[in-house]
Design a protein around this nucleic acid. Structure first.
Lengths: 228, 228
DNA sequence: TTATGATTTAAACGAACGTATGAATTATCA
DNA sequence: TGATAATTCATACGTTCGTTTAAATCATAA
């Protein structure tokens, strides 16, 4: 094992793995592809990280540690500034999702590559990835859900949890950028050929998320009643 | 190749593949797992479908053919009933996403297993899957986007396309049900232990989608102007 | 019953996978 | 400079992968 770290090789591997996992998924990327693209020896991954699974975790930890700490800091500040007032829901949504989306412009923190990787991975079925992400996100998710509960005291908690879930989905899909169902037609070219595709996507997504979060609460039909 | 079809073996394979692809993804599922769970010989997949890729496509085609035809029929009916009036946006959203979500109760059309598989696959990075789904969905997507354009003439088309995209993401994530970031806490147990988890999720999701679709249009900042 | 084609079967193919090994090389510092 | 540790390297291991083959079995109908 390494006690003195060679950060050059490590980061070359992490960068290549990030890009390849984004493009082909965890199972679809081989160690030989990674080490080949990183121009390092095949054995380097096992030497520096121990295994492919541990590499995958390190790829995420490198980015998520900062992201979730930043989310905590932003929420700290929002709550401090609000005093005893509740924080505005739109500010909470921006603190969680906006902080994420603004990573797209920050190449040093992974930029679009990491964003797309994260978006895709949130629906990955691979078990150890799910368990790892749940653990990494536990603290920040609880903080933000609690903040939304206080910001929307009139909305049932279960409703808020679901809407957080839906917001996560819309965001993941948007940043994954696979566009699986995107078919090029005339009006789509017109809509997306500009360089600032992402710049314009972010306010659009934020508007959509807030609209969804603030939608009227649905009334459930009772089996033998006549609920609205 | 088969000219007389043995539908028993074929369907056993399709059912097992659907379940396993849902649970472990395309790359994470082996032919030996599939044929093992289906209790058929290993060579049966290549005999009946030709390859693993072709099997994956048939798993989807079996369900999507009906779904997208049904979506067409429902939209046909809505437009016929509306006459020369535009169809209500909420009716269009229900026709597209509600028709999908109601498959959950229809075990003969795949039920929750297929829904979760579809949700996960929409962010799959595997290239041939993306290409296949884009082709399968092309017709119905164009129809529905056109319907939304007419239903919301005051909203820019690019905005509608993006919001359709966001709605797809929220729905995919919700039905994928991986809950990657879900951490069990007290209030979550309270919110979700009931049998009718899905029954209540559907109206919640629809309310969220409509809320997002009808959100105020964001104004973009001009580089040298003072846009609102 | 027998001939014919459809289907199933066991076995094997070469390729690619993640991982491990031990020697060679490089860096560190007394 | 020489000893020690860290890192890189070529190579190989055992396994699993998707696919193919040819023989065996089954179903159908003349």
């Amino acid at each position: 094992m390494a006690e003195t770290r060679n950060n050059v090789t490590r980061e070359r591997i992490l960068d290549a793995a990030e890009r390849l996992f984004m493009a082909h998924g965890y199972e679809g990327t081989s160690m030989r592809q990674i080490t080949g693209e990183a121009n390092v020896n095949l054995a380097a991954v096992n030497y520096h990280f121990g295994s492919k699974e541990a590499l995958m975790q390190e790829v995420f930890r490198r980015r998520l540690d900062w992201l979730n700490e930043e989310r905590m800091r932003v929420l700290d500040r929002l709550e401090r500034e609000a005093g005893d007032q509740p924080v505005k829901p739109s500010a909470i949504v921006d603190a969680f999702f906006g902080t994420l989306l603004r990573m797209a412009d920050d190449e040093q923190r992974g930029g679009m590559t990491f964003l797309r990787l994260l978006g895709r991975t949130l629906t990955e079925p691979t078990e150890f990835i799910r368990a790892f992400l749940a653990h990494e996100y536990k603290e920040v998710m609880d903080r933000y859900k609690g903040a939304l509960f206080r910001a929307l005291p009139e909305v049932p908690k279960a409703e808020i949890v679901w809407r957080f879930h839906f917001m996560l989905g819309a965001t993941s899909y948007a940043i994954a950028g696979t566009d699986a169902l995107r078919v090029v037609t005339d009006w789509q070219i017109e809509a997306e050929d500009s360089v600032d595709r992402l710049d314009r996507m972010v306010p659009r997504l934020m508007a959509f998320l807030i609209g969804g979060l603030r939608a009227p609460i649905p009334q459930f039909r009772e089996p033998s009643g006549e609920g609205g």
